[in-house]
């Protein structure tokens, strides 16, 4: 099974969920207010969204803004660390690739 959010109803911390929507490469993805862009993507079942130089898939590695594996474009701003950026309702996220021109994605 893929990553997921602890359901609010059974969460021991007793929290509420205010839904938000972002788009990822045009597709709508649902999350909740307060999540990072990476958290929204992970909880929506997406483990990877970026491609490294060879075309290999990447997602979250360090989770705290150190490794830069999770970079995305948010509202036309490139190279945003998805694990650090809080998602805002309506954010348009585009995935990025570091593939050299002419490299076939693996």
């Amino acid at each position: 099974m893929s990553p997921r959010r602890v359901p609010a109803e059974t969460d021991a911390v007793g929290r509420c969920e205010r839904p938000l929507r972002i788009t990822v490469d045009g597709e709508t993805v649902e999350g909740v207010d307060g999540q990072s862009v990476a958290g929204v993507l992970l909880a929506a079942g997406r483990l990877a969204w970026r491609r490294g130089p060879s075309g290999a898939a990447r997602g979250v590695f360090c989770g705290i803004g150190v490794c830069f594996d999770c970079l995305v474009t948010v509202n036309a701003e490139r190279d945003v660390r998805a694990c650090r950026r809080p998602a805002r309702d309506g954010d348009a996220v585009t995935t990025q690739s570091r593939t050299a021109p002419g490299t076939l994605p693996r």
């Binding site: 021991a12 911390v13 007793g14 929290r15 205010r18 909740v32 307060g34």
Partner: peptide
């Protein structure tokens, strides 16, 4: 936890 989660515990 993020503020919008309004966690009670």
């Amino acid at each position: 936890l993020p503020e919008p989660y309004a966690a009670t515990h």
